[in-house]
Computed example of a mutant assay.
Amino acid sequence: MDMSVTPLAHQVTSKALTWLHAHREHGALPEYSTAQLAEPNSVYKPLGETALAASLVVREAVAGTQELRIARELLDFCWEQLGEGAMLHERLLRYPMMSDPLETYTHFARSGYRHRALERLVAHTTSLRSARAAEVLPNRRLAVANAARVAGLDRGPIPFDWDALRRETWLGSFPEPWLVDWVNAYNMTHSVFHCTDWGRLPTGLGADLSAYVGNWLPVWTDIWAEIGEWDLMAELMIVGSCLPEPHCDAGDWERLASLQHEDGLYPRDAQPVSDDPGERFSDQHHPTVVAAVAGTLALSRTLGSRP
């Protein structure tokens, strides 16, 4: 493991968290928001993504006292925005086939925030045949399975078959690596994230798939870096920190750190970044979350907090 990655990963994490904290009000829910929001991606998805990054900082506990404080403040803000879980509970009551309440809740449950009524409802809905048979992308099934696992809600009468879930994904077919495209590259990264619970379970992908990803990850990372897809490049770097033999390349980290803006924003791609505060948040929030996660997990693996 190249220890020269450690200061770069810490720098990226700290700056990204600072940006997310400074601009958190841009991700606040609109006034009079209700659980009937038709499109969560455009309204409270940023809250869930911010909570993901913050929850991993808290879980790994390697970033430093200042970063832990910021992460906790971000989690408190997001939890308060969601009515301390009440909005997610009401949303699932109204739309029992939707998985976003569980997936959002998991980031808080990982960090000790609980809503018992929501947990009872999730335990019921995740056991339903209809919910298990919903026609979604295979990596989305993995997302639900991991969310239930993290929240401790996967102990129902129908256990999740992780081997089958892995095999159903694009990655699980051991695809021709030169045929990777933008969509399947993102799907592959999320398959890895969910199988390993964002690096908590480095063996969760299985030895054969881990070896396959480890062989081709440096090539894929270089490809997306070369064409200026910085968000995807950083997601692939997260994948490297999720493997049993982590791939944390100093050159990749020097490149990522050089792309990050001084205020902590990490750009989505090589296109110009808007000067408008609202557009900056809507366009660059996700990649900045990705940078925070990438830095957190790389820092954890280089410091040896995972086997």
Rank of each mutant, 00 (worst) to 15 (best):
L217K: 01
A145V: 03
D249C: 15
R306Q: 11
P157V: 01
I227C: 14
R116G: 04
P277V: 06
M97Y: 03
L236Y: 14
F193K: 07
L56R: 04
R301K: 12
E176R: 13
D197H: 06
H285W: 15
Q66H: 14
G204W: 06
P244D: 08
L236T: 00
S300A: 15
G228Q: 00
S258Q: 06
G83V: 01
P177L: 06
E67M: 04
R69G: 14
R155Y: 10
A151M: 01
G206I: 01
W162P: 11
D154V: 05
L8V: 01
L52N: 12
T302Y: 06
P218C: 05
A185R: 10
R91A: 00
A211Y: 11
H190L: 03
R268N: 10
G228I: 06
Q284W: 00
V293P: 07
G152S: 03
L118A: 02
I238Q: 14
R255K: 13
T34R: 01
H23L: 09
V192W: 02
V144P: 00
V213H: 01
A16I: 06
T6A: 14
S300Y: 13
P244S: 13
T288C: 04
F160T: 08
T189N: 09
C78L: 02
P40I: 00
G206D: 06
P159M: 00
G264V: 00
G228S: 07
W253S: 09
P138E: 08
A109E: 04
T296Q: 09
S274V: 02
E279F: 03
P202H: 09
V12Y: 05
H89C: 02
H261R: 13
E84F: 07
T221Y: 01
E49K: 13
T65V: 14
I158K: 11
A71M: 12
E25C: 05
H89I: 00
S305C: 11
S130P: 02
L153R: 01
H124Y: 14
P267D: 06
P159Q: 06
H124E: 10
E119D: 03
A234P: 04
H89M: 09
L179I: 06
L20M: 10
R141G: 07
A134H: 11
Y113I: 04
T302L: 13
V150M: 03
G304A: 08
H23F: 10
I223K: 14
A117M: 09
M237A: 12
A294S: 12
F77H: 05
L256E: 02
Y266C: 10
D222E: 15
A51Q: 08
H286V: 00
D163I: 04
R155F: 09
R116V: 07
W170Q: 10
A151R: 02
W220K: 03
H10Q: 15
S55L: 09
Q66W: 05
R110L: 11
C78Q: 02
S305D: 12
A250T: 11
G240P: 07
S99Q: 06
S282H: 11
I238D: 04
V62K: 12
H115K: 00
L88R: 00
A134G: 11
G228E: 10
R155L: 05
E67D: 15
A28H: 12
A185S: 13
H261M: 07
L8I: 05
G112N: 10
V58Q: 15
K45P: 05
T18P: 05
D161E: 04
R94W: 05
